[in-house]
Design a protein around this nucleic acid. Structure first.
Lengths: 139, 139
DNA sequence: TTCGTTGTTGCACTTTAGTGCGATAGAATT
DNA sequence: AATTCTATCGCACTAAAGTGCAACAACGAA
């Protein structure tokens, strides 16, 4: 528990960022969950127990955390920027019924033949979005 | 040339939609291009030679064309809905340098092992976004 | 502990995608 | 050609993400 806290603080510090309660809370919230929240969701959850971060601060924290590579944006539905605390390569699963979003391990779909692309195009990375039904919604 | 026009009209009619110059222009524009324009881009191009469709009409046409399955939305960057005149399964390539978007054929990455997903999850479809550098931007 | 630097706050503001509406125009069926 | 139903038009409006700002707070180095 305590070392989780230290880990988070260390990661933020390593990147040359000041550690503030707001940044800590935003990053910790992202790491603690397996889904991929919107700014709005983060804002609500972070302030659930007691008010700790304003809207401007959450945006600011997410921006700076993204700039140093601790979090990343992902794009899974219309016009909504979601954030992801995992920065290692992985894929995503979207339930077509309830909309829930899950991580899929990189190893599930690795070694795609990127050399078979049209002439002149160099593929360097890829990301797969699988659609289907999740555990709860399964037929 | 003439048969392309007939083909487009027939496709719209088949779906039980009235053929209007606006719908025709929007759909023809989408079919004629290989990129994946935003509503804004479609609006501009369709009215390039002479004004033919208002903003409301372009939105309306895209909505109804999407509802009947003639076009589909795709989501490749932040908060911008793009449209795609191809409805058969295919993948996308995004140039990290110039942002251009290209289609990749389905056969490039087919037969992904969807059976290896976590328990309870049923994958029914997938889509791959490859990132890299395109012909113009190639190193 | 002090102090300089940087971050936070709240709120109003900007921006932009998208919608609603009533009047007009036009497609298709007969 | 007449009729009916539906689409389009322009434009103002909504909705919602995100930004700017200036006063204030607080992190952390010394």
């Amino acid at each position: 528990m305590e070392n989780v806290k230290n880990l988070i603080q260390q990661r933020i510090k390593e990147k040359g960022l000041r550690i503030t309660p707001q940044r800590y809370a935003v990053y910790a919230n992202l790491l603690a969950r397996c889904d991929h929240p919107t700014v709005e969701q983060i804002l609500i959850e972070v302030n659930q127990d007691l008010p700790i971060a304003s809207k401007a601060s959450v945006y600011s924290a997410l921006t700076v955390l993204r700039e140093v590579g601790l979090v990343r944006e992902i794009l899974l539905d219309e016009g909504i920027t979601r954030y992801d605390g995992r920065i290692d390569p992985h894929h995503h699963f979207v339930c077509v019924n309830c909309g829930s979003i899950l991580d899929l391990e990189w190893d599930n779909f690795k070694d795609l033949p990127l050399q078979n692309l049209p002439t002149g195009i160099k593929g360097t990375s890829y990301e797969i979005t699988v659609k289907g039904t999740c555990d709860q919604c399964g037929s």
